[in-house]
Amino acid sequence: MKHPCFLPGLAAAMLLAAGGASAGDAAHGQVLYKTMCMSCHSIDYNGVGPAHKGVFGRKAGSAAGYAYSPAVKASAIVWNEKTLDQWLAGPEKLIPGQKMGYLVPSAQDRADLIAYLQQESARASSAQAAK
């Protein structure tokens, strides 16, 4: 019989070998957000880029009060873990003609940022439900 810790270790090794990131760390994602994203974005308000509050489950190009590119407005993308990962890995590849000129090459950094955005979206939903 195999040792019970063998299978999780094997799964982690296979994930790393395949180039995937481990589960996101929202606390590290918050640090990354502050250093990488906040020059253009905010969780709560539109700036150079749109606000990220409630981004999970939101259709791309639909945050109120932000002037999106026609390409983003016309896309049928709904933001979730997969679409945000694709966006952060290569915005122009996901939506040609968009106007974000920044990408996050590290799969782990993307996972951490997405975990943070997901956490903040959940907080926004909870706050909205409490009203």
Rank of each mutant, 00 (worst) to 15 (best):
residue 41 H to D: 12
residue 1 M to N: 01
residue 40 C to W: 07
residue 42 S to H: 06
residue 41 H to P: 08
residue 35 T to F: 12
residue 109 D to C: 03
residue 43 I to Q: 11
residue 124 A to C: 11
residue 119 Q to Y: 00
residue 64 A to G: 15
residue 44 D to S: 08
residue 26 A to V: 12
residue 21 A to Q: 11
residue 24 G to C: 06
residue 23 A to M: 03
residue 76 A to Q: 12
residue 30 Q to D: 10
residue 51 A to S: 14
residue 37 C to K: 15
residue 57 G to S: 14
residue 114 I to V: 04
residue 9 G to L: 10
residue 14 M to K: 15
residue 104 V to M: 14
residue 98 Q to K: 04
residue 40 C to D: 02
residue 50 P to E: 15
residue 78 V to D: 10
residue 113 L to V: 05
residue 73 K to T: 02
residue 13 A to W: 04
residue 52 H to Q: 15
residue 12 A to N: 05
residue 56 F to W: 03
residue 90 G to S: 09
residue 29 G to C: 10
residue 86 Q to M: 15
residue 131 K to C: 15
residue 76 A to N: 06
residue 55 V to T: 12
residue 10 L to H: 01
residue 59 K to Q: 11
residue 90 G to I: 00
residue 4 P to L: 04
residue 34 K to I: 11
residue 40 C to R: 09
residue 38 M to L: 13
residue 110 R to F: 12
residue 60 A to Q: 06
residue 15 L to F: 02
residue 51 A to Q: 09
residue 113 L to N: 00
residue 9 G to E: 13
residue 122 A to T: 03
residue 15 L to S: 04
residue 39 S to K: 04
residue 34 K to Y: 09
residue 41 H to E: 04
residue 86 Q to E: 14
residue 73 K to W: 03
residue 46 N to Y: 01
residue 29 G to L: 05
residue 28 H to A: 06
residue 48 V to T: 04
residue 69 S to T: 08
residue 47 G to T: 10
residue 121 S to W: 02
residue 2 K to R: 11
residue 26 A to D: 15
residue 33 Y to P: 02
residue 86 Q to V: 03
residue 117 L to G: 09
residue 123 R to K: 13
residue 30 Q to A: 13
residue 129 A to Y: 05
residue 75 S to R: 13
residue 91 P to K: 09
residue 86 Q to G: 04
residue 65 G to W: 06
residue 19 G to N: 01
residue 58 R to D: 07
residue 32 L to V: 00
residue 38 M to D: 10
residue 129 A to C: 05
residue 127 A to P: 04
residue 114 I to K: 00
residue 6 F to C: 10
residue 30 Q to H: 10
residue 81 E to T: 01
residue 99 K to L: 05
residue 108 Q to R: 08
residue 42 S to R: 13
residue 26 A to K: 10
residue 112 D to S: 08
residue 36 M to Q: 14
residue 115 A to V: 05
residue 12 A to M: 14
residue 27 A to P: 02
residue 54 G to F: 01
residue 54 G to D: 02
residue 7 L to M: 12
residue 85 D to F: 06
residue 70 P to Y: 01
residue 33 Y to C: 07
residue 6 F to W: 12
residue 103 L to N: 10
